[in-house]
Computed example of a mutant assay.
Amino acid sequence: MTPESRDESGDLSPDEAFAILANETRFEIIQTLWELYEPDDPANLVKFSDLYDSDTAVTFSELYDRVGYGDTGNFNYHLEQLTDHFVRRTDAGYELTEAGFEIARAVVAGTVRERPHLDATELDADCPRCDAPVVAHYENHHLIVSCSECRGIWQNATGEAGVLFTFPLPPTGLSGRTPDEAFHATLAFNLNRVQSFISGICPDCSSAVDQSLDICENHDPRDQSGCPDCHRQHLIEVGEVCHQCKSVARGPLSIAILAHPAVAAFYYDHGIEHLFASWETFRHAQSVEEEILETDPLRIRLTVPCENDRLRLTLDETLSVVEAVEETSYVRD
């Protein structure tokens, strides 16, 4: 089925979507509607809900004039190809659908006036493993954070170098921010996404996600040098994959468990306001103890310490917490 012959009321396949958007005029229509959209207008605060009487859509003539297309008939044809999926027709004219907004936002997030760049910069943060200064640099739309002394949490295949984390950050995330501000923004941006994955919901398309575990059978992190088998400090890694839009999240289970409400309550009882989407999550995760209790069925124990107390969490094969026990006044080895 070609875009021209598709059923307007039906679903749009990825091939059809790419074919529709691979046209300069159609893309310019989306861009123009986005530029004319006023998010502060009360009628746009609750979009598509008909809670307000006013209709903020753009008229055909205004849209035609703004785009500057020379042929009214062909312009109307291109507009109709976008309608229902990327553009919505109202009594007053045309406006972007949520899918249209997502296309525009993806372009805006990756566009800045100058190509963003951040050389290796020492941050106002200490390594959670050795307390040495943390260093960050930005390349390929990712913020790479490393320790200035140790090999961090993940090591390369030779074990000679490693990182604390490598997180994606749209170029606009650097705009107007200091390196330290970009560092914390990256953590908040990505760990909030991780929390959505943990809840079983893809943060990009809202589809269900599939979960998998990677347990290193011969784990031997060897202090600061990393495990020679899995090249990481943590025993258990959890992966979350959305097969609908191919978004993915992967990281230590010792970090993911810190999103559980039992952990937040445990810290709060000790006078700590635990915010998952923060640098402190990485710091706390380095003291979480991992243990495989059983393999069939799988039972995992994670122990979260705080002062002289600890919270023991037992997880099943779905990573659901089946038991939470708090122990007080213990002394760690």
Rank of each mutant, 00 (worst) to 15 (best):
P179Q: 04
R151W: 07
A157S: 14
A265E: 14
N74K: 15
D11A: 14
R332M: 12
V108T: 07
A92H: 05
T314N: 06
I29L: 12
A104N: 06
I198R: 05
A17H: 07
E4Q: 13
E95K: 13
T328H: 15
V135H: 06
D71T: 02
D50S: 13
V209P: 05
D126H: 14
P261C: 06
G239K: 01
D124A: 15
R250S: 13
W279P: 02
L313T: 02
S13W: 13
D309P: 01
R250T: 11
G251Y: 03
V322P: 05
D15M: 11
S278W: 02
G100F: 07
F183C: 07
S13L: 13
R250G: 11
Y37H: 12
T59R: 10
A256R: 04
E323I: 00
T281I: 02
S278A: 04
A43E: 06
V67S: 07
R332L: 12
T32Q: 08
L191N: 00
C150M: 09
L174D: 01
D71P: 00
V304Y: 03
V107K: 06
T158N: 07
V108C: 00
D309Y: 01
I292S: 01
C216R: 08
N76M: 10
G73H: 07
Y69H: 09
H142Q: 08
D65L: 14
C245M: 03
P133C: 05
V209C: 04
P221T: 11
N190C: 03
E237L: 13
E280M: 08
I292G: 05
T111A: 10
C245K: 02
E291Q: 14
L118Q: 05
T32E: 10
D210I: 10
D296R: 15
S254K: 10
A249Q: 00
D53M: 04
D124R: 15
Y37L: 07
L311Q: 09
V304N: 03
V145L: 01
H274A: 04
D229G: 03
A264K: 12
V108A: 06
E273F: 09
L174C: 03
L293F: 05
S320K: 11
S212Y: 04
R115H: 14
R301L: 07
V107N: 01
S5K: 15
L235G: 00
P228D: 10
D65H: 14
D309M: 01
S148P: 05
P128G: 09
F101T: 05
A185G: 11
E160V: 10
T25M: 10
I144H: 03
A136W: 01
S320W: 08
A285C: 08
I144T: 08
D333P: 12
V238I: 08
T72E: 15
V238S: 03
H274W: 01
H284G: 01
T295Q: 14
E290R: 13
Y69A: 02
E326P: 01
A249Y: 06
G70D: 12
F167M: 08
L36C: 11
Y77V: 02
S225K: 11
L293R: 08
A262M: 12
E149Q: 14
R115E: 15
V58Y: 02
H234K: 15
A249P: 00
L33Q: 07
A259T: 00
E294I: 08
L298N: 10
N192R: 12
V241P: 02
F75W: 03
H85E: 12
L311S: 09
L191Y: 04
H142L: 06
A277P: 01
A182M: 04
L174K: 07
D316C: 00
S54A: 12
E217S: 14
V325W: 06
R105F: 08
